[in-house]
Every structure is written in structure tokens, then in C-alpha cells.
Design a protein around this nucleic acid. Sequence first.
RNA 1: GGCCCUAUCGUCUAGUGGCUAGGACAAUGCCCUUUCACGGCAUAAACAGGGGUUCGAUCCCCCUUGGGGCUACCA
Length: 471
Amino acid sequence: MDVRVRFAPSPTGFLHLGGVRTALFNWLFARNEGGKFLLRIEDTDKERSEKRFEDDILQNLEWLGIVPDEPIIRQTDRLDAYEKFLKQLLEENKAYYCFCSSKELEEEYQAQLSQGIIPKYSGKCKNISKENLEIKLKSSSAVIRLKMPERIISFSDMIRGKVEFDTKLFGDIIIAKGLREPLYNLAVVVDDEEQRITHVIRGEEHLSNTPKQIVIQEALGFPLVTYAHLPLILGADKKKLSKRFLTNSLSDYKNKGYLPSAVLNFLVLLGWHPKEDREVLSIFEMVNEFAIKRVQKAGAVFNPEKLDWLNFMHIRAMDSEELSKNLIPFVPTDWLSDSAKFNRSVIISKDRLKNLCDFQNDSKFIFTLPEYKVETIPWKDTTQQDAIKNLKNILDLIKNEIDENFPSTELKDAILKFADEEGRGNVLWPLRTALSGMESSPGPTDLLYVLGRAESIERINIALRKLEVSS
RNA sequence: GGCCCUAUCGUCUAGUGGCUAGGACAAUGCCCUUUCACGGCAUAAACAGGGGUUCGAUCCCCCUUGGGGCUACCA
């Protein structure tokens, strides 16, 4: 049978790292097995579901390249199906209406607690007579409960092995607030059947929902599915990342300049590891090597430093044209007016970029020479006169340069030869500071390359003027 | 409280009934070097505790402890 998996987020918050990881593992499993990956929006909670959250989830998944193989379905579009199966359960006497108010339920719960009994629903609405039921349904609101068979539910989890629960502890759970208001456990089971899902891969927080869903599947006569419960992603406090905290929403990472491949690489390593000691993986490699048997059981704390490093590695692995494209949203539009210069600036900073966001700050000096003090120009304890002399010499070398490919190898060699004669720091430091206006920057030949001949000359002249005025 | 899951360096992890317990991030030091990065080379850093099983346990079993999840008319 072909593998069919799904990611089923509820649009009650922005897409967050934990959700992406679940989606990723499903997607990788499907790709690796040659199966299908589906997407389902679980929007049965009308109070908390919002369109903007759904949009956020969809947009970000697309940005990551995790796209479904079949049309997306929404639970609010499937009310007829839930109603049908709810009626079936009611008719077969596997479920019943419950009229208890939340106040009554709360009192019952507290009473059980104080008596030291395991709290669960007493089942007092189970045996309401037909006539009474019809009268009550007209006058008061009712929820639908499943008659929970009392037995041990056992299933084999692909990651955890055999897991057992005693349903006796659950009581008759509520599966719907009304015929057209299903609750999570019912809706999931009905939709997984509709989408012919073979493997349910989801976060560990759902482990204790699984026996309830198995009971519903059995009551409905649905085939069983295989489960895999992923370890949770934990914050620094070891608590699970929750969608209710905006801090880990994926858009934040996107906006900070993390690459999709880096985010995915980082997330795949949280709970999974390839056979060898490689950690920097392309998406292609992740798909090829993913194996659910190698998924970890314990929760994983995520550390942002490793994400930064992976992002750095993925940026380096990218070709510079591709990187330029990715950088466009992160720079002021006027940088783009000289596209050749922009491309050169990308080339020289490609190997020093931790994220796309840094580029603007790191490269600002290329597009606008910053204000700087004359004291920064001379090297260590050399004099301003030394700096003037050396810069003038270099200026001559540059002016004599006729090669169109600026700076030519000859020019670079000439500068280096001169620097060796005069002392490297004594020549290269003033050159670099004159070109960049900065205490730290890429090397002088990179700067000549990115600025071009005319602007290089101009900047050296500016430095010379500063030096001459102050001496 | 109850139920369930879980346990190797600070973090992510590899690993096996017998290993000097391996790698990566981060940290520290040194080297490279005109600066900042990069890179190179080192250093420090872990099998939670207690019982078993065994000739031998980090690895298998049990208990304890720690951590986490669930315990909604949320998902």
C-alpha cells in the first residue's frame, strides 16, 4: 500500500518551529517512501481559528518548499461527513447525548477529586429514555459522548515501540458539541479515513490522544493506521515550544534572513541524524537518507547558535547569483541601481555572512563611505606621513593600471610587492581603511574589486585630503 | 494527584555486552593574517543514582530520581 501522510495544523497561531518540524518529518517520510504528503487545516475551533493564521501557515510552508501533493482540505468544509458518522454512532448506540452543564461537571469533578477517586464522567446521561431525549433536545443544548469500552488499548509506535493505555481511566469522552460541531478526536479520525492516511506522524503531545482515536476508529469500523510520535522540540527552559508564543514563529526566522534549507537542516537534526557524521545536509540528502527508525525518543532543546552556523554553511554553499536574489528583499532599493556593484558586494561577503539580514549592515560602507577619523588611517605606531607616502604610491600603481579587469593580477602583485618592502601593515592597513572607512572589513584587494577603479581612487584621495589637512 | 513518554559532554547527537565513549555547535588556547571574519591545530567537557543478569555492563531487566507530555464542550 502506498504511503500517505499528512500535516494537520490548526490555524490558531502562526506557524512555529515545532509545526514545521512535524511537517518536515511527514514530508521527508513521504518523499523517501515515494508516497504522498497531504495538508489538512483543522479549523473546527471556531473561536480560536483565524484566516490570517491559515495564510501564515500556507505561505511559510510554501517558502520552505513543503508543499502538499493533493488539494488542501479544511474541516469546516466537511461538516456533512462528521454529521453522518456522528448519526451512525448515535444510532448504533455507541455514542449518546449528554445534557450536563459545565457547572454540574465541574462540581462532579471536584467531588471526585476530594474523595480521592480518579475523576471521570459518571455517565449519568447514558440511559435517558427516547421520549425524554426528544423533549430535552428541543429545550436544552447537548454534547455527544462516546461510550468508552473499558479495556487496554495497545498499539505499536514506529518510534517508541509498544505503547499501552487503559481506557477505563478516560470515561466517556466528548466527541462533538453538536452534530455539526465535531471535536478534534472525532474529526481527525474521520478525515484520516477520508484522506486514506496510512501513517500518522505527529508530536508526542498527541500520544495520549491515540487510544481515544483508536477507539473511535473501531466504533466506526475504520482500518487502523500506523503511528509515529515525534519527540518534542523544547525551549531553553525544557518546555515545549508552543504556538501560543509568537517568539518562534517561522516568519521571524524568514525575516531575520535564515535560508529555508538551513532551517530545514537545523530542524531535521533535532531528533534525527544521518548514519555518518555529516551534519550539513541539502534537502536532497535529507530526503534520500531520512529513516524514521533513526528518530530519537527524547525531547530536543534547540540552540540558536547551531542554526546560525548551519545558515552560514548554507549561504556559503549557495552560488552568488542565487544569493543575490535572496538578498534583494534585505537591502535598500538604491543599492540595486548599480547591479554590477551589488553583485560584486555579494561575492565578497558570501563567505562571511551568518544571515541575510546582516548583509545590509556589513556592506553599508560599500555604498556609502562612512564618516571616519583621520587617526584610523595610519598603521599602529607609524606616522601620518608614512600613510600619505604609501597611499600616494598605491594611487600611482592604480592609476597606471590599464587592465579592464580591475584589479588585475599584476596590480595585486605590485601592491603586495610594495607592501612587502614597506611593511605589510604599514601599507595594507591605510589602504584598507581608506577604502572602507572602517576599523575592520574585508581585505584591500576585495575592496578594490568591489568599489572599482574610479571609486577606489576617489576614496584614497579623500583619505589623503584628511591626512594632509590634519598634518 | 493520575496516566503516558523519556534519560550519553552546556546543547544536538554517534555508538557497542569488552572502545583511550566518536562527531558537531558553543567555549578556551595556539597558528595563519594588514583588521574583522574564514580556515587549520589543540584543550576542556558526558554514559543520572541504586540494585540485579553476566566472566564483563554506558548498552539488557527492575527500582529510584530527574525532565517532559496529557489529564478541555483546544488541537
